[in-house]
Structure formats: structure tokens, C-alpha cells
């Protein structure tokens, strides 16, 4: 029973990792840029939601706050792409890596200035309520996280498979130049991809905040989501969610069953193992050009 309880908590955590990883993968697929600031964008999303919802700030209803924070983060990431990232269009991958790392530091600093470094928690309607299945206790917050992730993943799937914009995004991610020749506005598409990734990050941040407390260093969680994205194979959307679940489940398991000290390195150790034995991830999508 203990095992099942850990599993449920792990799945809920894993959903958050998976959603952040989804943001990485979206941006990587579309623009071949790895956004190291994504964890910090998620942190920002969580704080924006907190600003809308909590009573000492604006005190809006939770659902309205969630929607508003998603919109705010979408606009923020769109502008971020237009103002900063687009300057590096066509520059080596490495510059974007360094740029986003630096941006992460800047975001963390401003979040610290605005919201302070004390851990804060989001006021949600789910807090403290639980339901019991036999011996397993499932918190409303955990159930909310899992359901929201399923809805979001399904929505994204439909968006990419069915809508005109989604298909255009897929085309731009597979071959920018060819997509451009086909009349797809590649630059606007990559801004929109950033906006979509920002919205996912906002949801992930809000979900995380509804489960526990947040502070500006929350962005470092993005590194675990990275491991998730790598495990899933860096170009696969279902892979990202799956990798997130693996990381989420392994973490509490390692804490419970492995000797102390090993639990922190478990997610990264799994990632390194995947890199050694299945170099392209479990859901290989990206292959390198061969001469």
C-alpha cells in the first residue's frame, strides 16, 4: 500500500515535470533552441497566478486567476521571443543556450525583488481536501494536477493534429526554409510556439503551486524537467510527458527505498543511463544528418 501511495504522489509530481518538459520540447522542435530559462518561466507563471488568486494581492477566483495567468505568460513569452530571442535567429545553438541561462538569472532576480524570497503558497479550492480509495489517500490537488495534465496534453494533441496553425507549426519545425517557401510566416510561428510553451509553463507552474509552496529558486526544477525531456527523446511530445512521469515516480521511490544521499541523483542517473543505452531517448524522433 505504501508503494501505491508513493506511486500516486509520484504521478502527480511527474505530470508537472512532464508539462515543463513539454515546453522545452515544443521550443526545441520548432526553433532548435534549447530554452534553459523554461524552469524560470514556469516559476514566473506560478507567481503570476499567485498574484491574481491570493487574498493579499488581487483575490480573484482560482479559475479566473489560472486563465489570466496563462494569458499573461503567453503574451510575455511571445514578446520575449520577439524582443530578445529573435535577434539570434540563425546564430549557433550555443548562443541561445547561454542567452537563456542568463535570462533565467534575470527572471529569478526580478521575481525575488517583486515577490520576495520567502516560500509562499497558492490559495486553491482543493487545498487540504482528500478522497480515500481503500488505503490510498488521494488529495484533491493531486487529482487536479493529473486531470489537468491529461486535458492539456489532449488539447495540445488536437491543436497540432487538427488546426491549421498547429500543422503550420509542425511544418516550420521540420524544415524552416521549406516552410518559408510554402508561405508559412516562420518568424511569427516561432513567436507563437514560444507563447504556447509559455502558456504550458504557466499551467505547470500553477499546478505545482497548488501542491506546495513556491519561491524564486523554483526554476531549478526545470533541470529535472530537462532530464525528463531527454529520457523521452528530445523531440517527442508524448515522450516528454512519459519522461516526466518516470522522473516523478522514481524520485519518491528512491527516497523511500534507496540509501540516503542517492535520491537526489536518481533522476540524473536515469537520464545518463538512457543517454548511454538509448542515445536518442526512449521515443527517438530526432536523427542527425549523415554525410
Amino acid at each position: 500500500m505504501d508503494f501505491l501511495q508513493l506511486l500516486v504522489g509520484g504521478i502527480a509530481n511527474g505530470c508537472v515535470y512532464g508539462l515543463v518538459a513539454l515546453g522545452f520540447v515544443l521550443i526545441y522542435k520548432a526553433t532548435e533552441a534549447v530554452n534553459f530559462a523554461h524552469g524560470d518561466i514556469m516559476m514566473l507563471g506560478a507567481f503570476v497566478a499567485l498574484t491574481f488568486v491570493n487574498h493579499e494581492w488581487m483575490g480573484l477566483p482560482f479559475w479566473l486567476g489560472l486563465i489570466l495567468s496563462v494569458i499573461v505568460m503567453g503574451v510575455f513569452c511571445y514578446l520575449l521571443e520577439v524582443v530578445v530571442i529573435r535577434q539570434l535567429f540563425g546564430q549557433p545553438q550555443f548562443s541561445v543556450v547561454v542567452l537563456t541561462i542568463a535570462l533565467g538569472f534575470v527572471l529569478r532576480f526580478f521575481a525575488g525583488v517583486i515577490w520576495g524570497h520567502e516560500p509562499q503558497s497558492l490559495e486553491t479550492p482543493m487545498a487540504g481536501k482528500t478522497m480515500n480509495f481503500g488505503d490510498i489517500v488521494l488529495g484533491y490537488d493531486e487529482a487536479f494536477v493529473i486531470i489537468a495534465t491529461i486535458i492539456l496534453a489532449g488539447g495540445l494533441y488536437l491543436f497540432f493534429a487538427r488546426t491549421r496553425l498547429g500543422v503550420a507549426m509542425q511544418a516550420a519545425s521540420q524544415n524552416q526554409l521549406a516552410a518559408y517557401y510554402m508561405g508559412i510566416p516562420v518568424k511569427r510561428i516561432s513567436s507563437l510556439i514560444w507563447a504556447v510553451a509559455g502558456m504550458t509553463a504557466a499551467v505547470a507552474g500553477t499546478l505545482f503551486a497548488s501542491k506546495g509552496s513556491i519561491d524564486p529558486s523554483l526554476g531549478l526544477l526545470g533541470i529535472k524537467a530537462f532530464a525528463a525531456a531527454v529520457i523521452g527523446g528530445f523531440g517527442s511530445l508524448p515522450g516528454a510527458i512519459f519522461g516526466g512521469l518516470i522522473i516523478g515516480i522514481v524520485e519518491p521511490m528512491a527516497q523511500a527505498y534507496a540509501p540516503p544521499g542517492y535520491s537526489q541523483i536518481a533522476p540524473y542517473a536515469i537520464m545518463l543511463l538512457v543517454l548511454v543505452f538509448r542515445p536518442n531517448g526512449l521515443f527517438a524522433q530526432i536523427q542527425q544528418k549523415k554525410v
Binding site: 526545441y28 534549447v34 533541470i223 528530445f234 537526489q264 540524473y268 542517473a269 537520464m271 545518463l272
Partner: peptide, 17 residues
């Protein structure tokens, strides 16, 4: 064996560990 970005991530993981 993979493209450059995996190296960055693997080294990042190593750095954190």
C-alpha cells in the same frame, strides 16, 4: 554520439550531481 545539445545536458546533470 549525439548532437551537441545532449552533451550540454549530460554535463549539466553531471555538474548538478
Amino acid at each position: 554520439r549525439m548532437s551537441g545539445i545532449y552533451l550540454a545536458i549530460a554535463t549539466l546533470a553531471f555538474g548538478i550531481m
